[in-house]
Nucleic acid binder design. Structure first.
Lengths: 348, 348
DNA sequence: CTTATTTGTGCAAACGTTTGTACTGGCTTT
DNA sequence: AAAGCCAGTACAAACGTTTGCACAAATAAG
């Protein structure tokens, strides 16, 4: 069917090995032969059979990413896509392909990773680490397979991983509010079993302390990474006898819920309540008003994860370089936390 | 390093071929041998080397998807993710892996597809077809490689493809408006070189005609699939001496722009202007107010595309089954097109 | 002018499978 | 009891590469 190295060799009147060496620019091939073979290569439209190459080289030049399927993560759609874009771009740039797989149950995830890695279809894996416990991590680790975590794990602190400094990020977000004169600042958190929620809460607390504002436990509410959680948090806060003037919200989607609720009740943002949240996914900009958000560099997370993984694949056994990569974040200020002229007069 | 079929054979005291046949449940293997070998297989933790299998079977059990990178498509983030989810889920269900690649330029796209397909790393490809001309299609077609289009192409009408009935969808959306009593209905379109824009415009016209409303050319504006386009369209319409009371908008993102503009100018939706759009991506629900939208079954598009492609791979040469697959759509009515009680009184 | 070295190429094994063919022994059939 | 058959297994070739080694010719060194 398709043209092999042997076909080329025959037509060029050389041996297959010579053709192979021409392809890899082996130094011991004469200028003349190289030129001749290359012409025929082109002429016949030769393409190396990647499978055959992999078989002998014992390396596949590809990595896999597991799509989390659990409902919980689904909302992260645009988040995940951005991540994948970063991963794929960097991987391709390094000559790697990316295999995407969808795990269902955790066991299924192990099966699929095991099939891909043990079956030598991929050289390593990238894991979205949100759960606190993860048997997939357990599996990969105990079999010494190269992999990288996007996120952080308290349980396995020494894994190769890429993450943000979420404590600092929340600190910055909170400081931002304080710098605008807010003293009554609430916090809408995510599920308490996510390292992410915990870290961001810490940063919030730190900023308050540092500014001599004492934290009020009743101004911290927990929820899911869902719009409804935001909605509920909003009504909780707005029904308090004493309300905060600003909210630090753990995720853009949750902010959406807050915003929607405020709108329904006729409150104005940022006049009645200022808001800042995290992730800066595309809807943060699109919302009404646009949400101030900490951009955590999602694309960059993916890009760096891929880079770290591939590096670790290519230098297996060697003393590891950097284990933990921290992606910088930055606050993107939009209307939801800005006082306009009009608002200022209102305040007075 | 890892355990091969030969290792198992040796330990079991049989030949490699026997082990292979045990694995494939060959009928001529005795119950006894099968049992014995299977135990050793398990014991040694055998995993077939997928590359080696591919080499001999000349089939890879994987397909590829090309990530469009052009800025134009970027906004579709959550759209694309949903598609990919459908593709991956179905593919995995059929025992196929999905390789994701990112094209940059069109030429780069061809290079990457060529490397993957000619290099026998994948058996076929799924293409997001938005452009009117596409050299990637040209390439795949002339080399008789299996592939499927998500979208429609006038230029190549006989390709395997998965699409919506966009004319009907727009017809339904427009009829929806008409059924609410609207007679002055504008249309915000996308780029005119997208089949999608054209089709939806057609459906809009058809619905108007059928209801005896004559279409006003000046109530049709073209734009990009971007928020700004919506914003501009909105100011155009609101500055007209005679304004429409409803808008059919080609895409949810564009609707977002419209909504934002209306909000800024102090107009109310749906009171001052009713809105319905297309795709029903997650933000349609999250927006303020939530947008009525035609759900085009994005996940289903991906799922079906994968299914069609794999079927065509597995039955190459045979008379093709269905060439064109149409995914059903449905209107999801939300606030942006509903008159509330309050609004009704306002109208009077 | 030998001998050592370099340069260029081919041979064959190896990677881990699958599969067509051939062989063996036991069983049926007449 | 000889012939035929079938179940069960092994052998070896093949898939398309890469690569260590051997070898020949050309060149350099002594």
């Amino acid at each position: 069917m398709s043209v092999t190295i042997k076909d080329v060799a025959k037509k060029a009147g050389v041996s297959p090995s010579t053709v192979s060496r021409v392809l890899s620019n082996h130094p011991r091939i004469s200028r003349e032969t190289s030129r001749k073979v290359k012409i025929i290569l082109e002429e016949m439209g030769y393409h190396p059979n990647i499978m055959a190459q992999s078989l002998v080289s014992k390396t596949t030049n590809s990595i896999c990413v597991i799509l989390p399927k659990s409902a919980e993560e689904l909302f992260l759609n645009s988040f995940f896509m951005e991540l994948v874009r970063g991963i794929v771009t960097q991987a391709n740039r390094s000559g790697y392909d990316v295999v995407l797989s969808s795990g269902g149950s955790e066991q299924e995830e192990i099966d699929v990773v095991s099939r891909l890695i043990n079956g030598k279809r991929v050289d390593g894996a990238i894991l979205l680490y949100s759960r606190k416990d993860d048997s997939v991590v357990e599996f990969l680790q105990s079999n010494h397979h190269p992999f990288v975590l996007i996120g952080r794990s308290d349980k396995y602190p020494n894994l190769l991983s890429v993450d943000n400094d979420n404590v600092q990020a929340a600190y910055d977000a909170t400081k931002h509010m304080i710098s605008f004169g807010h003293k009554r600042i609430g916090f809408v958190s995510g599920p308490p079993n996510h390292v992410l929620s915990v870290d961001r809460l810490k940063g919030y607390q730190k900023a308050l302390e540092e500014s001599g504002i004492d934290m009020r436990k009743d101004w911290i509410v927990e929820g899911e990474f869902l719009q409804e959680s935001g909605y509920r948090a909003m009504s909780f806060f707005m029904n308090l006898p004493e309300r905060p003037t600003a909210l630090v919200v753990v995720d853009d989607i949750v902010s959406f819920g807050v915003l929607r609720g405020l709108h329904e009740l006729g409150y104005k943002v940022p006049d009645d309540l200022s808001i800042v949240s995290f992730n800066n996914i595309s809807i943060a900009e699109l919302s009404n008003p646009p949400i101030s958000s900490i951009d955590i560099g999602i694309y960059n997370l993916g890009y760096t994860a891929s880079q770290a993984l591939i590096q670790s694949i290519q230098h297996q056994g060697e003393p590891q370089f950097q284990k933990r990569h921290i992606i910088p974040h930055r606050l993107v200020v939009r209307e939801s936390s800005m006082f306009s002229m009009v608002d200022q007069t209102h305040q007075i």
